[in-house]
Every structure is written in C-alpha cells, then in structure tokens.
Design a binder for these strands. Structure first.
Lengths: 246, 246
DNA sequence: AAGTGGTCTAGACCACAAC
DNA sequence: TTGTGGTCTAGACCACTTA
C-alpha cells in the first residue's frame, strides 16, 4: 500500500486525525489536540487546521464542544436502539406498532386539508392537486431523548364513503378508521436517507454529521390501492430499523 | 413567523441561498452566483462566503464543479431506484434476490479466515475471536453506475458439519451451501445510515453530502441460530429500499 | 485568567474549465 | 484570456468553559 499523501495540507491533517481515531491512538470520548497545537505541529495556520477538522465533523467522527475542545465519537458502535418495523392487529381489533414505543406529541395540530404535491400524488396514485388530509407532528419518547418527525397524508377520496366527521377521529387512530370503512389493510415501507436541513437538525436534536433515516409507509387496501401515506423521520445515529424478510 | 436572523454572517448567507433553493428562486440544475459576487453582495470576504457554502454542500443541496461553478441539486426528488428487499427460493432450489440486480464483481478475492470482532460476534452469537470466513467485494451494476460494498461473515462452526472444502463453494452461492448443510433459512435485516469515510466516498463514487445506507442481513436457521452475517453499503442518494410488512 | 473553539478580514497564488 | 473554485496565510476579536 503506497502511502499516498493528499496534496492539500488540510487533507493530510484530516487523514492523520482519522487514522488516529480509527486505530485507537485517539480513543473514543477523549479530547483531541487543540487547534492551536495542531497548527504548530503541522506548521500551518489555524484556518487550515479548521478546514481539516471540518471534514471529520461532516463525517461525524468528532464532536466539538464550544470552549471545551474536540472529542472523538465512537466510530463503529452498534446502534443502541433497534426499532422493529411492523404493524399487527390485536385481538380487540386495534392496530399496534411492532416497535412498542409510546409517543408523546407535545404539539397536536388537527389535520388540515391541502392539495397533493407531485411526490405525494405519485405515491398515492391520485391526480396532482387532489385534496388530501395532512397532519404533521414532532413526537417524543423517553422524556424527549428519542424524537421523530411524523407526517401523514390521506386522500379525501378514500374517505368519501364515510362521514367527513371522520376527520376528527382519523388521527391518531388512522388504521382503525380505515379498517372501519371496510378496507383490508396492507403495508409497504420505503427507506431512504439524507442529510437534514437546519430545521430538522434543531427539531430532532441531531449532532453534526448525522443523517436522517426516512421511512415512507404506504397503506394499501386488498386490491393494492393506496389509502394513506405516512412519513417517519428518525435520527440516523444510534438507531437501526429491523425488518423480517418474507 | 419572526424572521430570526442568525448572528453569524456566513449563516445568513447559507440561509439566503437555502431559502432560494427551496422556494425555486434558484432552480435545480441552475448555477448559483459565484463566490466573488456573493462576497460583494453581502459585503464580506470570500472565505466567509465559502463557509456559508460549506453548509449547503454538507447538506447535499448544491454541487460544486471545479472551474465551472456551483449548481443546485434537486432537493426533494424521489429516488430514481427502488430496491425491493427479499429472498425467495426458486423452483430449482436456488435462492434469488428480490431486487433482480445482476452484479459484476471486478475484484473477486476468495474468502479469508479471520477472528470475529465484537460487533460481528454479538450479532452471530459466537464468542469474540472465534474463527469466521470473511469476504469483501465491491459490486457494480449498470456499467458501474450502481455500486455496492458487500461484506459477509460465516462462522466456521456453522460449517463444521460439512466438508471444509465448502470454503470454495461458499461464495457466491452462500444460501444454497447453507441449505445443502440441512439448515432451514430465515432472514432478518437491520437498516442503518451514516456518513461515509473518504475511502467509501471514493469506492461508491458518492457526491458530497450524501450518506450511505447500511443493510445488515442476518441469516438464521429454523431455531433462530445465526448462520451468516452480510453487510450491504448502498449510496444514500437516489436510492430507496422497499420492504413489505408482515 | 487562561484556554478553547467561532467568526472574520484582505489579501495571495494555484488548478481547472470555457471561450 | 477570463472566470471559476481550491488552498493558504497571519493575524484579529469574540464567546464560551473551566479553574
């Protein structure tokens, strides 16, 4: 293995620190040398050191604490929370999530009527602009330590058969309501990931360099017609989703 | 909505550009103003502008092309590739992946014997340091446009009943071999996400600000004993995983 | 008070891409 | 040749944390 030196000095600094973090020279939880010290060590100015450090922060390898220093994050730790994905119908007819998490929802705005955007319309197989009921909430569990952004879209056409007063009872008992309308429910989930926008960083209390897991759940009736679309945004660090394969 | 101004100037620049990208002032694919122009516009030096831009790059909102300019990436596009996750046994007894992707594997090193690390041992429920067969490969499809990092671990104890010459035939027909040893196969998958290390960025040809989806597949026998552990690293942009819920 | 990271200036020179 | 982004300097001052 030829030790290929990156041309840019800040990349050499980043590579040095990354090597040290991965091979245990800088153990997890321990502070790294200060920017001043690194600048002298490598004979560069502080902005150059900071540019190298920025790479490690973006990769989620280090955590910087204002006024205290820069600390190594555990690189290869298993997520401490495994979230089993699934829905089962209990004996009393209620639907329960397989994850068993009890959510608090501090802000509980009722559903609002909006026009379907392109992305939503495609998945629900309705025309763009068709009316849908929309609900959005920030959910918390474990006294705010676990957070999730939740969104749900239900086409009005799905509810047309039922009383529109359903609107009140549609949430939080979405599946019971749909089931009560005579639909047989099936579920498909799509898993994506992306870097969060600043708003999501704040809402989910995400550390730097941490992506979000996005789960899109489509509820289908027996004939495969989409009934509802839900979106779950999870913090991507320290959490994994569990699926059984058929 | 109180228009809360961020204190730092570079944050104001980042917020301005982000707003413009999300509301369509700067349409996807179009170039943004040059760093020089932004510096004059905001009355700051170029490094300050670059700091603001760094935020957008880390969030995957813009793509910078050396010598050409800075371009808006589609923010809310649906992934163009949906990968159904599952394994089914064909009539002839062979196991086939539900995704239907035909992988090329340019480098095809044989499996090597290694000691189980803590993370691997925990999932396979074997003692740390126990011998496992390990294989790693970079897989490509669609003429290199789709890439995946693949790793597999099989405890030697699982193969103890069979001929150790299995080692040769263990890959790429892992499931057929296990099935031939008399095991009944069940599959569980764990989905995680994280930012890639520079090596992964290079191997998977990842754009900036794009996380990786990591799928850990555990193969279990009828009694729930772990038989094999596989790891799939997918690029997190433009790709989603699809699961059916039981 | 001392040490840390956070922000910013006003330049410089270079590499790359397009004309 | 011109315009773009990439790298880097040598400072400055500020905000925060700990002692």
């Amino acid at each position: 293995m030829p030790s290929e030196k990156p041309q840019a000095r800040y990349k050499a600094i980043a590579a040095h620190l990354q090597r040290g973090i991965l091979d245990g020279t800088y153990p997890a939880g321990q502070p790294l040398p200060s920017e001043e010290i690194l600048a002298k060590q490598f004979g560069v100015s502080r902005p150059t050191v900071r540019q190298g450090i920025a790479e490690l922060r973006a990769a989620g390898l280090v955590e910087v604490m204002m006024g205290r220093g820069m600390f190594v994050r555990s690189p290869h730790a298993r997520p401490s929370l495994t979230v089993p994905r699934g829905v089962r119908q209990a004996d009393d007819g209620r639907y329960v999530e397989a994850d068993g998490i009890r959510w608090d929802t501090p802000d509980e705005p009722g559903p609002v009527r909006v026009d379907a955007t392109l992305a939503v319309a495609e998945l629900l197989r309705i025309p763009v602009g068709d009316p849908v009921l929309f609900r959005e909430a920030l959910r918390m569990a474990d006294r705010g330590r676990l957070r999730q952004l939740y969104r749900a879209y239900v086409p009005l056409s799905v509810l047309a058969d039922g009383d529109l007063g359903e609107r009140a009872s549609l949430f939080p008992h979405l599946y019971e309501t749909l089931s009560g309308l005579g639909y047989e429910l099936h579920f498909t989930e799509y898993v994506r990931t992306r870097m969060p926008l600043p708003e999501q960083v704040a809402a989910l209390r995400l550390p730097e360099g941490v992506p979000v897991l996005v789960v899109v759940r489509l509820t289908l009736d027996g004939a495969g017609r989409p009934l509802a679309l839900e979106e779950f945004h999870w913090p991507g660090d320290d959490l994994e989703l569990k699926y059984g394969l058929a």
